[in-house]
């Protein structure tokens, strides 16, 4: 094993490991295959976690297939404070000098990664949709621009670590060969001035009795073409006919307040989904939305404009009024 280290930030969600860590680790393991070809030896895969973890969570990290688990703990790290967290992680980086540092582009990751970029004077790429080494060993980070219409390659050739955030749901979790990672404890030295600038007063968790869109196998998604509040309900009724289903929305539908659950918004500033079946109703196909559904297995779109962009990315095209078609579809489902 080489001295190169690939750090992966393992988000500590109230003592449990956020799933995005396993997605990033799977990608890092794939990167390591190419790195071994190029350099003759793999890099060390290192999970980095901040704050106390429950025993089960720590074990799940230790057995996740990583080589090292850096556990950064301090009494000031029990509650999330981005200023303190980024400082603590920066201190570990200065000591261990990672080659690459991967974060999920979650609320936490998108705050920590750019802060770390400043503290370590290095480049950060955002919301990557792919990561790879080219044959010269350059680490290429594919980032979406213009809502995903264009993908640009980003390189960080001269500074380390090469920091990237990756949108959750882009990489799939693979089971890695089990091994027992070495746990290394790290205690940062934190100045009191860093500690009290920001205080987390409360966490307001939205109670969700429905399945999150990113876990759904069938998604019924509504856009601006649904027309009004009352029309929205048919989406829920149709979703009821499918196991593991969810109702999604686009930005315009959210702006119209037809749904108040912004966690169901799909696209660049929302969720990336990969259902077996996606039915989009009254959706024009703005890139911001389309790039969130491109991994769906089967896409059905209904729009009254026969030239709507959404049809270019659809398996099935239905030209017509979304509400009329959905109503007929619901009536047909009743007969099942």
């Amino acid at each position: 094993m080489s001295n190169r280290k690939i750090f992966i930030y393992a988000e500590n969600d109230c003592g449990a490991i956020e799933n995005s860590y396993f997605e990033l680790l799977s990608k890092a393991a794939a990167l390591n295959v190419k790195l071994t070809e190029l350099e003759g030896a793999p890099a060390q895969l290192c999970a980095v976690t901040v704050g106390e973890l429950g025993e089960d969570s720590l074990n799940s990290l230790v057995e996740s297939g990583t080589d090292v688990v850096y556990s950064i703990t301090d009494e000031s790290l029990t509650v999330y404070n981005p200023a303190v967290y980024s400082e603590a992680v920066a201190q570990l980086c200065k000591l261990e000098e990672p080659y690459i540092f991967l974060f999920a582009s979650t609320a936490m990751g998108t705050e920590l990664a750019p802060s770390l970029g400043v503290k370590l004077h290095t480049g950060v790429s955002a919301h990557c949709v792919d990561l790879r080494f080219d044959d010269s060993g350059a680490f290429i980070q594919d980032v979406p621009a213009f809502g995903g219409k264009v993908i640009g390659e980003i390189l960080t050739p001269d500074t380390l670590p090469q920091i990237a955030t990756v949108k959750p749901g882009i990489f799939q979790c693979e089971c890695l060969a089990a091994k027992s990672a070495e746990v290394k404890k790290f205690s940062p030295s934190l100045d009191s001035t860093v500690l009290d600038g920001i205080v987390l007063k409360d966490v307001h968790v939205k109670d969700r009795d429905s399945l999150p869109v990113e876990q759904a196998e069938t998604i019924i998604c509504g856009g601006f073409g649904m027309g009004c509040d009352e029309n929205w309900e048919v989406l829920d009724r149709i979703a009821n006919y499918f196991e593991n289903s969810a109702v999604g929305c686009t930005r315009p539908a959210l702006d119209e307040d037809w749904t108040d659950d912004d966690g169901t918004m799909i696209g660049t500033s929302g969720k990336t989904v990969r259902p077996k079946l996606y039915i989009g109703a009254g959706i024009s196909g703005a890139m911001h939305h389309v790039c969130g559904i491109s991994d769906a297995e089967f896409i059905v779109s209904i729009n009254k404009d026969e030239n709507a962009d959404i049809f270019n990315v659809s398996d099935i095209k239905i030209v017509g009024d979304a509400v009329k078609i959905l109503t007929a579809f619901e009536e047909r489902l009743v007969q099942e």
Binding site: T122, V150, G152, E153, I154, T156, N312, V313, D315
Partner: peptide, 14 residues
Amino acid sequence: PTKAGAIFTPDTGR
């Protein structure tokens, strides 16, 4: 510190 490489449009056609 970051440099832009090639750009391309993703193939989302169906």
